[in-house]
Structures are given as structure tokens and as C-alpha cells.
Nucleic acid binder design. Structure first.
Length: 489
RNA sequence: GGCGCCAUGGUGUAAUUGGUUAACACGCCGCCCUCUCAAGGCGGAGAGUUCGGGUUCGAUCCCCGAUGGCGCUACCA
């Protein structure tokens, strides 16, 4: 294995490139942490680039949430959409001209071609012969292309991957990895809407932004040959590639919201401390020496800056063990000075903003101030698990009810977190499935509040927040799945 | 199915880059402390390192194969 020691002169520049498609992801924090450490340890730059080229999945509020989550963790970046920098803009949607320019270069060089196949045709073809794209557009004559263009037929631009041979690249954690070209697809570079795909935008930006080390998740390994081919087609120098292990659910599958809370917003709102989260992420895959202090598993960001070594990361995917995170978080909570602990409480689960929102909802509903607690317990508790006789509607079977809850969850995941949107989405679902508004809302109320009487449901959900609401629903379903209620005689 | 990556108790990690009774932490169980619950202290169960072959005086560690898990296989990232 060749030496990868860096030249002291070398300019280290790394980046994270999250997509604003929803809540900021715990995986983004993990990769962010490693990139952050790598840059800071070497006097390099840490860049934040927003990859918003997927119009369909774009979520407007997502970008700000990503900023907030990374700030919360203390992973500060040197260049980004909010800070600017010498290689901007740092939002891919503002760089579309750059990508088409580069696609044109590829076209001119014969390294890419226009594909006029429709998505439907491709899917049909794929069903027949799965595997590498083998359409005929690759071999279209100049006049045929002209004719298609004249007819204004929509097209994509694809990378012309060599028919034979192979591409080998070096993964800094694993060594050389080879892919035969006949297993590499003619990747779409520019979609028919004119936006670039990840592959093109990523390579072009990484080069233009002078990224020295691409440190990203393992799921990208199989597309790396395409990226390498792209660098070569442009005649650009390759960055180093580091593929970090994928965080896993308990069952070892790639971490997902269905099986684990993955939203950083959730962790923040649920009262995890950033120090604990960072510490926990630093545990994933290793990277910290065993004996840096007495409690070798507990370390701070400064300690990580001193001792963390990316090369020491083991490529096996670690399970994101919530139980251990909670223990670690408890350790950090107990270590807080009393006034710091109180301050933490008052800035999160008991913040003025949160409490006053709750208060406005409660004021019309109580007769003595002390009743406040009676009506707000579910806002402050971490876990509400209603018994079956509380949530199960009369004349509804348990399986049907749980199936309906799962659908409520799906609907709520996709909905914009506003009163109107939630209400109409829920009502629409109920109507489609034959659930009355009353049953529909009461079911949700029971699960979320642990009671059949509560402040207005949707208002409560708005205050409680999307991340925690969804988490509560998921936990409910989870608990039901794990311990199905006993049959009643 | 194809391609790729990975493989130490249930989970996260260690084990002078071949020599240990395979260590630590979480979790679990028990005891102590204690008005209770946590925390804390003490102790315990739990892996012979996925399996099978090599190489070697000697393999968790090196090689090969199998198996299993995961990822990718989109005009998503």
C-alpha cells in the first residue's frame, strides 16, 4: 500500500455536500465531523456546499435547518452559501451555467452524448435486460442528433463509459478498488430538466473548489469509477477518496428514519447535548486511540482534534446504538454544573419560546394555574405510550388501526408543517380509508398525548414539532410491533 | 440476479502492524449503598475472533475459498 502522507505544502480542502431534501441527517453530522477534523488538523479549509439539484425532492426550509444543526454541533465551516468564499457560489442551483458549460466540453470531446430515450422506454428496457444501459443513442449519427434536436425532443446527456477495460481507484481506507467498465452504467450527467445529476455537479465542483480529499459515505464507492472517468475526461487531477462506513440500524441496514431517529432536529429537541452527539459520532468506526484519557470512550471535540485519526477508521458499518448515545448523554448531563444544567433545560425542553407557545394554548383551558401540568405533560415527556384500550377505537381491529397509524405517519412525514396542510392531509387520508374525522384525530391524539382529552391536536403538533411528533408515532408503532397487546378474552 | 465493500460477545471499540487466560465501554443479571428511583461501588453471564482451508514453531492479525451482512444497480443524492 503506497504512502499517503501529505506534503506539508499541500493545500487541504474538504467539503460536505448535503442535499436540502428534508431534516438534516445524522449521517451528515458524522461525515461533517470527520471532514471538519481532517481540515482543522491540517490547517485546511472546510467547505459547505449545498447540493440542491433535485427539484422534485427540494425542501425550502431544509437548508437553514442544515446550517442550524451544524452550528448546534459546533462544526463550523470556512466557506459556504451563507459565508461566501473564493470559489462560490456554494449552492449548486446557482451554478447551472457552469455545469452545462462542462457538459458541452464533454460533448465536444466525445466523452459524452445526448440520449433521447424517455424515462418510460428506459424502464421498460431495464425490465427486460437489467444492467448496463445499452440504448442506441450512444451511436446516433450527427444527423440523427440534429433531427432530434430540431424536433425539440427532450434529452439527457450521458457519460460515454468505455465498453471494455476497467477503472481502478484508491480508497484511502481500503486500498485499490477495481470496476470493470461493462459493469458501469452510462451515467446521466445532465437531466432533461437541464439540471446536473450529483455525479457531474459533484466532480465539477470538487475540482473547481480545489477539493483535495473527498471524504464521504461508503454508498458512493460504486459510483466512484464514474467520477474518476469524469476527472480523466476533463484532464483533471484526482482528489483522494475516503469512504466512511455507513451508520446502521439495529438490524445492520443503512440507517433510516423508519428504524431510527435520524433527524438532528429531533436529537436537539429531544434534549441531546451536542457534546454527547459529537462524542458518540466520534465513537463510530473508531478513529480515536484507546488511551487518551482515563475514560477512553469519553472525549471532547478538542480532544478529537488532537487525537482523531481518519486512517484508523474501520470500514465495517457501526450500528447507531441509541441506548449507548443516551447513556453518554446522561454522562454529559450529570457532569454539568447545576446552573449550566438549568440553563440547558431552559434553552431546550423548557425554553421560553416553547413554554410560552404551550401557555397560550393552555390559558383558556384551566381554572387554576396549577392545572398547567395536567394538560401539558405530553409536551414535556419524552415517551408517551398509550394502552390499547385508550387508543383503539370501538369497532376497529388492532391490525387495521395500526395500519392506519402507519399511513398517518407516512402522510405526516411528507406534509408541510402548517395547520392547513396537516389538517387537509389527515382528513384526506381518513376519507380515503373510511375513517371519520373524529376517529382519525382521536387516534392520533391518544398516541401523541396519551389521553383522549387534550388541547387542540394540530396546534399541539405544531408546537411539539414535526421531528418529535413523527418520532412519537414511530415509537408507538415500534412498541406495538415489539409487544403486541395480548388478546382479550 | 450483477458488481462492490465488509466480517472480534447483543451493541460500540481494544489487542506491541503473528506470541494475551481475547481487554474496555454500553446493555443485561446479581449484590452493596439507599425512604424510592437514578447515580456510584462490587461481582457475574456473554465472543475462542463467521466457517473451511492454507502460510508459520505459532494466527483475531497474512493468503485463498465459502458463507453471511450491507451498499450500488434512478433523468435521488
Amino acid at each position: 500500500m503506497s504512502d499517503t502522507a501529505l506534503h506539508p505544502e499541500e493545500n487541504i480542502r474538504v467539503r460536505i455536500a448535503p442535499s436540502p431534501t428534508g431534516d438534516p441527517h445524522v449521517g451528515t453530522a458524522y461525515i461533517g465531523l470527520i471532514n471538519f477534523l481532517y481540515a482543522r488538523q491540517r490547517g485546511g479549509k472546510f467547505v459547505l456546499r449545498i447540493e440542491d439539484t433535485d427539484r422534485a425532492r427540494f425542501v425550502a426550509t431544509s437548508e437553514q435547518m442544515i446550517f442550524d444543526a451544524l452550528h448546534w454541533l459546533g462544526l463550523t465551516w470556512d466557506e459556504g452559501p451563507d459565508k461566501g468564499g473564493p470559489f462560490g457560489p456554494y449552492r449548486q442551483s446557482e451554478r447551472t451555467a457552469i455545469y452545462s458549460e462542462h457538459a458541452q466540453i464533454l460533448l465536444d470531446a466525445g466523452a459524452a452524448y445526448r440520449c433521447f430515450c424517455t424515462a418510460e422506454a428506459l424502464e421498460a428496457a431495464r425490465r427486460q435486460t437489467p444492467g448496463r444501459y445499452s440504448g442506441t443513442c450512444r451511436n446516433l449519427s450527427v444527423s440523427e442528433v440534429e433531427a432530434n434536436l430540431k424536433a425539440a425532443r427532450p434529452f439527457t446527456i450521458r457519460l460515454k463509459v468505455p465498453l471494455d477495460g476497467s477503472t481502478t481507484f484508491r480508497d484511502e481506507l481500503r486500498g485499490p478498488i477495481t470496476f470493470e467498465h461493462n459493469n458501469v452504467d452510462d451515467q446521466v450527467l445532465i437531466k432533461s430538466d437541464g439540471f446536473p445529476t450529483y455525479h457531474l455537479a459533484n466532480v465539477v465542483d470538487d475540482h473547481l473548489m480545489q477539493i483535495s480529499d473527498v471524504i464521504r459515505a461508503e454508498e458512493w464507492i460504486s459510483s466512484t469509477p464514474k467520477h474518476v472517468l469524469l476527472y480523466q475526461a476533463f484532464g483533471w487531477k484526482l482528489p483522494r477518496f475516503w469512504h466512511m462506513p455507513l451508520l446502521r440500524n439495529q438490524d445492520k441496514s443503512k440507517i433510516s428514519k423508519r428504524k431510527n431517529p435520524v433527524s438532528l432536529v429531533y436529537y436537539r429537541q429531544a434534549g441531546f447535548l451536542p457534546e454527547a452527539m459529537l462524542n458518540f459520532l466520534g465513537l463510530m468506526g473508531g478513529g480515536m486511540p484507546a488511551d487518551i484519557n482515563d475514560a477512553s470512550e469519553k472525549f471532547t471535540l478538542p480532544e478529537m482534534l488532537r487525537h482523531f485519526d481518519v486512517k484508523a477508521i474501520r470500514p465495517a458499518g457501526p450500528v447507531f446504538d441509541l441506548t449507548k448515545l443516551r447513556w453518554l448523554n446522561g454522562e454529559y448531563i450529570r457532569a454539568l454544573a447545576p446552573q449550566a444544567f438549568y440553563a440547558a433545560l431552559r434553552s431546550t425542553v423548557l425554553s421560553d419560546a416553547y413554554l410560552s407557545e404551550i401557555a397560550s394554548l393552555i390559558q383558556p383551558r384551566i381554572e387554576t394555574l396549577a392545572e398547567f401540568g395536567n394538560l401539558t405533560h405530553f409536551f414535556l415527556a419524552d415517551d408517551i405510550l398509550p394502552s390499547q384500550d385508550l387508543f383503539l377505537p370501538k369497532n376497529r381491529a388492532l391490525p387495521d388501526t395500526l395500519a392506519f397509524v402507519a399511513e398517518q405517519l407516512t402522510v405526516l412525514e411528507a406534509v408541510e408543517w402548517t395547520h392547513a396542510a396537516i389538517e387537509s392531509a389527515l382528513k384526506q387520508l381518513g376519507e380515503a380509508k373510511g375513517w371519520s374525522v373524529k376517529e382519525n384525530f382521536m387516534l392520533l391524539r391518544a398516541i401523541l398525548t396519551g389521553s383522549t382529552s387534550s388541547p387542540p391536536l394540530i396546534e399541539s403538533m405544531l408546537i411539539f414539532g414535526k421531528a418529535r411528533t413523527l418520532d412519537r408515532l414511530r415509537r408507538f408503532l415500534d412498541a406495538q410491533k415489539k409487544a403486541p397487546a395480548p388478546k382479550k378474552g
